[in-house]
Design a protein around this nucleic acid. Structure first.
Lengths: 335, 335
DNA sequence: CTGAAAGCGCTAACAC
DNA sequence: GTGTTAGCGCTTTCAG
């Protein structure tokens, strides 16, 4: 019927190399217990015929697929785009395919994706920040899971990977202080978001540790989008004693703030120093934003590493903090 | 060994509902030739036990997986992010998973991905603009393929979906003309890129049809990145008789141009009208960019539709042009 | 160290 | 309409 005939199977290889399919299987999977002579002979036949084992058959046989499910709520966000890119690359290098479970913040979709992941017997689940954990907590038949920037799931101890948000913000703030700034404001992210909160605390700690006061109006809350940075900076600059520098909880808001400052006829960094957080290349243009970069590549790397260990039932780490990295652009100046 | 036991199979369902597994299979797959009575009875058992057929077993049985391979060269590009999002959604709704084959412009990776796609028996391949077609042309055992904004593959007639780039640029230009602009410049994309070329031709045609001259310096070439828009506009504004409006082959360059204009102390649209192309929400901030929006949602929809038809061996269309859509922001004014 | 054989859970002839 | 049965191509005991 369909062109199966064109496919060469383990049986053919066995026949051609004069061994049993069991032996071929052992060779394919690098299972010990095959004499070098045989192994070599079989491998030669495999190579000659460019035989590729059927992943489908293997999947059924071991009752698990070679795919992992990555749950995200917003593909368009550059942070996630980058994360997807990195995870996808590493997964592929390990012969896994990555399934993007894009919840779009709809619990119903997330639920369907979880069912899907189970139905295709995904090898594991990568959970990023977002949505509540209810779905995953109540799920009994939990697959190996790795958390990326996401709150732990009660009842289970999965490895969690995250940037050192606290430390990053702390150092970003210290950097401004090292440039002799004292009136430093903060434009934060949504309070409910874990990473946003950590960055806020990092900022506050740095200020306190250096004996610098934080006024009531100095701490504004944004939503991680550019517009909110734009509005926040308006409020900050209308303060009786406006800040000389502002630390933003992400680049988008930093970018929004910068734009607004420029459009007010002021200059960055002459009139205001701006530092961001993330370091994913968004729209850097007139300015080269100074920022604390998250090493998304390392995050992805560690996440995958832990995942692969989970899958092969090796020991895993509970929590991994990836350091951030100061990237000096031209939006901060010495006072 | 592993917890297979927890899984309920087609055999159980058959037993519990007192029929053969063939009948259950027919019910599952909505195959005709089962009496309503039986169908109902079986369905009831299925529902009661929340039975989910094993996708893995099915895949092996039909010798094809429920996944499609999408080839792209840059996940981070918002256009592709959006495309991925849409395709992924539709694929999922049809019980397919989408594998992102991110070539990163490396032929070697593309090759490996193609091999991978075949090894997992992907149901089909979605090809987007980029890389040369050599790889896919020389591939004999070609899977069902749909082209998105990509040159046809010689030797095979696959459906191709693309925005009406020519018409879009033509209308964008006409829009400016309708606002009484006569000195209209164009910032184009890389000449080798099909869509960029079509847009350039659309612009030229509109100018000619309206009897407007296009000076030597009016036609600049960019690379679809913001920086190139920035540089292009510098050249354009230093022309002896600078344009009053500029049509950009994509939003990023339009955005770069706008930024540069602002930083020169000029205003948009007062001193210069700017119109873009794409309409993917990138960093719209101070300005709401006027642009020709590509209906990526429709592109994805049509692409998937054709793909599903290919898979089920139905007739397909050869070429589908999706109209673009003028989105009026605040970067164009009447002269 | 190697091979025979029993599945994995489903689909699809083919028979009744 | 319904059931029987032979695979799909591999992994994995279990003997030898």
């Amino acid at each position: 019927m369909d062109s199966r005939s064109d496919r060469i199977t383990i049986r053919e290889i066995a026949q051609w190399s004069g061994v049993s399919i069991a032996t071929v299987s052992r060779v394919i999977n690098n299972v010990p217990g095959v004499s070098d002579a045989l192994r070599e002979r079989v491998q030669k036949v495999i190579d000659e015929h460019e035989y590729e084992p059927s992943q489908l058959a293997r999947n059924l046989s071991v009752n698990a697929s070679n795919s992992m499910a990555l749950f995200v709520y917003d593909i368009m966000n550059p942070f996630f785009s980058k994360l997807i890119q990195e995870l996808n690359r590493i997964a592929f290098d390990h012969n896994y395919s990555l399934i993007i479970c894009d919840s779009s913040n709809e619990p119903e979709r997330e639920m369907r994706y979880l069912a899907f992941a189970k139905s295709i017997k995904a090898a594991g689940i990568l959970l990023t920040e977002g949505a509540d954990n209810g779905l995953f907590e109540s799920d009994a038949s939990m697959l190996p899971t790795v958390l990326i920037d996401r709150a732990a799931i009660s009842g289970k101890q999965w490895p969690m990977i995250t940037s050192d948000n606290y430390g990053g913000a702390y150092h970003a703030c210290e950097y401004l202080i090292s440039l002799d700034h004292e009136r430093i404001a903060f434009i934060g992210g949504p309070e409910c978001v874990r990473s946003a909160d950590e960055r806020r605390r990092g900022y506050l700690a740095a200020m306190e540790d250096h004996g610098l006061p934080v006024g009531d109006g100095d701490l504004t809350e944004g939503d991680f989008k550019a517009e909110s940075g734009l509005h926040a900076i308006e409020r900050l600059l209308s303060l009786p004693e406006p800040p000389t520098a502002v630390l933003c909880a992400n680049d988008l808001m930093a970018w929004g703030a910068t734009m607004r400052v420029l459009s007010m006829g002021l200059r960055v960094p002459e009139d205001l120093s701006v530092i961001g957080f993330d370091g994913v290349d968004t729209c850097s243009l007139l300015h080269n934003l100074t920022t604390m970069r998250q090493r998304i590549d390392l995050i992805a790397q560690e996440a995958m590493k832990q995942m692969l260990r989970l899958i092969s039932s090796q020991e895993t780490l509970d929590e991994i903090r990836i350091p951030t990295e100061l990237v000096i652009g031209d939006t901060c100046r010495r006072l």
